[in-house]
Design a protein around this nucleic acid. Sequence first.
RNA 1: GGUCCCUUCGUCUAUCGGUUAGGACAUGUGGUUUUCAUCCAUAAAAGAGGGGUUCGAUUCCCCUAGGGACCGCCA
Length: 458
Amino acid sequence: MNNNIIVRFAPSPTGPLHIGGARTALFNWLFAKNQGGLSLLRIEDTDKARSKKEFEDQIIETLKWLEINPDEDPVKQSLNINKHVEVANNLLSKGFAYKCYCSYEELEKEKELSKKNNLPYVYSGKCRESNKTGSSFVVRFKSKKSGTTILNDLVQGKIEISNSTIEDFVILRSDNTPTYQLSASVDDHLMKISHVIRGDDHKINTFKQIQIFEAMNWEIPSYAHIPLIHSMEGKKLSKRDAATTVEDYKKIGILPESLRNYLLRLGWSYKDKEIFTLKESIELFNLEGIGKSPSKLDMDRVLSINETYIKNLNENTLFNYFELYVTNYKEKINDISLNKIKTNFSIFRNKAKTLEDIFNNAQFIFNYKKINFEKEINDSQKKLLNLFLEKIRPLQDHEFDKIKTIIEDILNEKKIKFKDFGQPVRIVLTGTKFAPSINEIIVSLGIEETKKRLSLYL
RNA sequence: GGUCCCUUCGUCUAUCGGUUAGGACAUGUGGUUUUCAUCCAUAAAAGAGGGGUUCGAUUCCCCUAGGGACCGCCA
């Protein structure tokens, strides 16, 4: 165990876990596992208005589903607020921060003015030197005004920024609560985080947080900013886009290992390898393999990878997934039908891309409806069905192997092709043209049910 | 608008100065098949543009163009 390597995934519980967050969590977790370090989960719930317990639970639950399990119990940032305030006051007394009495209206005016003049808005910092007092104030960090700061990002490489572009950011709100910049810095320090792996959208924040670290004389962690996941339109993924939350994928029957595998290969690669077991991904993952450009979500690829896992997973494991999926997202299947599905599971899984496909493929077992007879079946087909029924009437469930001969006899007798026989039988037995082979249908239904369904039409 | 980042087939990506620029998904075609699917084979498909450096650039540098992120008392 390498105790020097500690990473964290720090979502805010303001919505369900989305796909970008899941990937960040995965990369953090894989990095820690690969390095023999520690992977922690910190719930950033300092925004009281938007944070919800249900989302916190949802995020933890979803990570569990993906088998991205933190090495320690989740930490709630809100429980640490006293420490954050303490640091703010410390900064204040050391002269690294100051009280700002500017009113909301005052700042709005400044913003408007710079917008009008087409200038970038940066807080003027006028309260730094003024002796203004008042009842309401925020605490701002004294950002460096000159020089440049270099961030050696583990993914992006060297990033140099002019300090003057970083404003005196707020670290304590007027209600004396800490802002994100402060809380994140303090907690990263307290939790001894060695590597901060997060989305690219945090890059500017890093320059702010580094200054807090420097002021407090804390050791600065390493940073890795991973490119964002874009929608098909090439924009940052938003709630409006389709399939943005992990739940969206769960709902259509994507397996956790498939989603993990897909997410791993989205923005990271190892040679030509596409399919990674969990063990392999831990062994092979590294920050160097992360690309620099944002990548787009591709549902076709998700489905394709899922199909690979559906085809290759051990049958019991897959059936357990299926059962769980049905209880969570579909109407209950009665025990007899479920058992039929289980004993003939390979029939249904072989033509499925998702668990939902398996469910749909097996529908004819538990959700059989008599079809519009007149429309689909003509008289000669009806005679065929009758003949077939008569021939299989004496059969028992263990005599499936005789069906093949019976069908061959009928084909010879009537001098027809299999298609002419198969089509009506398939429709009558399943209610759809797209179903497994006749043999498989009969085996999965059982002889009695087959007879029953055939006689419905005679 | 300012700051920063990015740019190889439609998509995810390989290439760490010399390759017929490779793979996967999707797509087209053909074959297997008891419908549908699977499976197999095969095809088409890419270095944004312009300058350098170099014997040689997709690869290194610069410019242009395009795209993106950030610019909250949200995180």
